[in-house]
Structure formats: C-alpha cells, structure tokens
Amino acid sequence: MELTLKKRNKKTIIPGFSLTLGYTMLYLSIIVILPLSMIFFNTFSMSWSEFYETISHPRAVASYKLTLGTSLGAGLINVVFGTIIAWVLIRYEFPGKKIVDGLVDLPFALPTAVAGIALATLYSPNGWVGQFFDFKIAYSPLGIIIALTFIGLPFVVRTVQPVLQNLSSEVEEASASLGANRIQTFTKVIFPELLPAMITGFSLAFARSLGEYGSIVFIAGNIPMKTEITPLIIMTKLEQYDYVGATAIATVMLIGSFLFLFIINIIQWVTNRKFNQH
C-alpha cells in the first residue's frame, strides 16, 4: 500500500513531463551540444604539442587578452549606464519615453556589420567624432570597447528594468521613514535588490562580447598583436584552410567562456541566495 502511494506521489499534476523533457534534451543536443562537440572532435586530430603551439602563439595570446579585456570593460560600462537608463525608463515620465525605450533594442536588431561600419566612420581619426580627439579611438582597443558597449547595451537594460519595475516604492518609503537619506536608501535598499539583475545583465553582455565579430572587425583595424580579436584569428585561420588550427583556438574560447560564465553564475547564486530561501 505504502509503495503504491509513493509511486503515485512521484507523478506530478502537470502533464507531459516526459514528452517535454525528451524534446528539450533532443533539441539541446542538436542545436547546442552537437556543434560544440564537433569543435572538440576536430581538435583531437592534433597532437598535444601542435595544439599547445597553436593556442600559445603570441598572436593568439595577445588576442585572448584583448578580447577578454575589452569584453570586461564594455560589460562594466554597460552595467553602470544600462542601469541608469533602466532607472530613467522606469522611474520618470517624459515625452518620447516610448521611443527611447525602443531605441534600447536597436543594437539587437541592427546587423552588427552595419553598427561596425557606422562606428568606424564616426570614430576614425577624421570622422565626425574622432577628429576632436588627439588619440586614436577607432583602430585601437578603445574602439573595440565602444563597439562592444553598443551591442551589449540592451542586455543590462532589459534585465534590470523588470526588477526595478517590481521594486515596490514602499521599501523606499519605509527606508525614508526610518530616517535614511536618499543616498543611504539607494546604497542600502535599492542597490542590493538590483545587484542580481545587474550581474545577470553583465554576464549576458559579457558573453555576447566574447563572441562578437561583425561590428569589431570594422572598427578594430585588426593589427596583429594590438587590435586583433580571437574570433578574427579563427576567421583568418579558416580562410587559410587551417580548420584544425581554427578549432583549436575555438576550443580555448569555448572553455574560457564556459569558465567565466560558471564563475559569474556562482557569484549570482551567492547574491541570489538570500532572496530565495524558504
């Protein structure tokens, strides 16, 4: 009797569990796992020493640093300004708010090459903006950061926005009635609530930046050792029919991205823990 009861309890009320789970597994296998495993599969045709030589080539190493550094920089810039934009869009009423809200999504919709060409034209030494600066913006890491900031902007805005929306004004009023000033209310009450969403937005923007190619190649100038990003190295190797070399670099990127996302997820789990304890 007890046994049958136990069995029945295991069944959930929501139907279709096995069907949907099976579908999910199949879908993920075809769309995500299969292509990714091909990278490893291809790389395995190299010997260890060949593999090591390819991935530790100074040009490749310089590109890792560049890609990582610019992605981090752009992600951080987006966290700050994306949060401000989300704040303005949620907290204030002003004419044209809907248009501003729509503009935020534009980097999603625009082909990245278009963005890259536009930014390169603007920021090149004799472009509209670039001419006012003594130092180079386009064709330098700074230009890459600008391009990555552009394409990563919607992630932070769109993740912080709903959280801000749901943040009740009552907690701020409670804080004020307890004698806190505005700065204290922001740093002690609002910011901790937003932090998990900001981290999510950051990790999305960061992950997107790591793999970005289209917008950067136009503005970066692609000078080896200086402004050559990892995806471009892969592209170059492919153009030279060095498929195995390309997948070797891709493997490094894949593992690197995975590790970074893993670390960010751990941070997120820690900051989220207090909200989800029951």
């Binding site: 009740s168 907690v171 009023e173 409670a174 004020a176 000033n181 609530e193 207090k274």
Partner: peptide
C-alpha cells in the same frame, strides 16, 4: 521630510528589506 518627522510607519504589506 519623513526622515525628520520622527515617526514609525508600518505598511500593509510589511515593506521589509528582503536582502
């Protein structure tokens, strides 16, 4: 301002700081 009124305010939905 509320912060200088020396009041205690209790909200219907508690308005506790979740974190």
């Amino acid at each position: 301002s509320p912060k200088e009124r020396k009041i205690g305010f209790v909200f219907q939905h508690y308005a506790l700081f979740r974190h």
